[in-house]
């Protein structure tokens, strides 16, 4: 299968391991990822809370390029995914905005590109095919799949049920992990609020970690660089702020899939976490 790949800015720096794991797992599963040529930032929260035109225009350039390449797009980052999906919708529904954007960029968008989250793309090859690639079943892993907000909301642009998403659980179940039904799988981690209102965001992160621990999780899987960064790298700050002692490894879901397929943990970026995931990984490798 051949599909356009929009990594997004974070996957070039703070979420490098997500990018690495995604490319390795995709190759292993026979999914050919073609980077969108010269892609640009989707604008993220900054654009949509400052200027509605930019919020549509920045993702639109990527959609135009993807269309020219004749490819649909898969997006690993939940935030980029939602921005691209919403821009696609604005372009389809608002003629004026669509015309202004295509004038500024100099090329039109015909609306042909279909935008998928990475979860959907991997699920698209079939759970049985995925299970067939598993050489190291994730049997010892009690994993809480964390979907956060933008993968599943608002309804209509999300890639799964907004209240009880299951796609990531199904992928990891195919890799023989034990997934958990837990209450905070779709609660917000605070996202970029952490950069301006850190204390408030730490509350949300604490709540998610606490709920996962209460549900019996030994690790959390996620599909968003900001979610991962908030839950992982801020655990120290959470522990300091609230006097807790969380030590919950936070994986990108393709890292776990890669592990199950027998790929090298280092190549999957498993040494790049703030909370050391070694114990969880060792439990898997037996």
């Amino acid at each position: 299968m051949k599909i356009g790949y929009y990594p997004g800015c974070s996957l070039q720096s703070s979420a490098k391991e997500y990018d690495r794991a995604t490319r390795l797992v995709a190759r292993h599963l026979g999914i050919q990822l073609h980077d969108i040529n010269d892609w640009n930032c989707c604008g993220a929260t900054a654009a949509h809370s400052m200027d509605h035109f930019l919020a549509a225009a920045l993702p639109a350039r990527n959609l135009i390029i993807a269309e020219e390449m004749g490819l649909d797009v898969t997006v690993p980052c939940a935030a980029c995914y939602q921005r691209l999906r919403l821009a696609h919708r604005v372009l389809a529904e608002n003629e004026e905005t669509a015309r202004d954007i295509s004038q500024l960029i100099g090329r039109p968008y015909k609306g042909k590109v279909r935008i998928y989250s990475l979860i959907e793309t991997i699920a698209g090859i079939g759970l049985e095919q995925l299970a067939a690639q598993v050489v190291r079943p994730l049997k010892e892993l009690r994993v809480a799949c964390y979907y956060g907000c933008l993968l599943v909301r608002p309804p209509g642009t999300g890639c799964d049920d907004p209240e009880n998403p299951r796609l990531m659980d199904e992928l990891l179940e195919a890799a023989k992990a034990e997934t958990l039904d837990w209450g905070y799988k779709n609660e917000c981690c605070g996202a970029s609020l952490v950069f301006s209102e850190r204390r408030l965001a730490l509350h949300l992160i604490r709540n998610i970690l606490r709920n996962a621990v209460d549900a019996g999780a030994t690790s959390i899987a996620c599909a968003c660089p900001l979610c991962q960064s908030n839950l992982d790298t801020r655990q120290g700050q959470v522990n300091k702020e609230f006097g807790t002692s969380f030590a919950m490894p936070i994986f990108y879901f393709p890292q776990l899939l890669g592990l199950a397929m027998g790929l090298n943990p280092q190549d999957l970026g498993l040494g790049m976490h703030f909370v050391d995931p070694q114990r969880a990984i060792k439990a898997v490798s037996g």
Partner: peptide, 30 residues
């Protein structure tokens, strides 16, 4: 982040910055 190589220290600039800047050229852009 630095020790894990997760922080790029120089900016990467895309070829199409002109197109991107045009998107910022509208009246009232932030």
């Amino acid at each position: 982040m630095l020790t894990r190589g997760k922080l790029r220290l120089t900016a990467e600039r895309i070829k199409g910055t002109k197109e991107v800047r045009r998107l910022f050229s509208r009246q009232g852009a932030p």
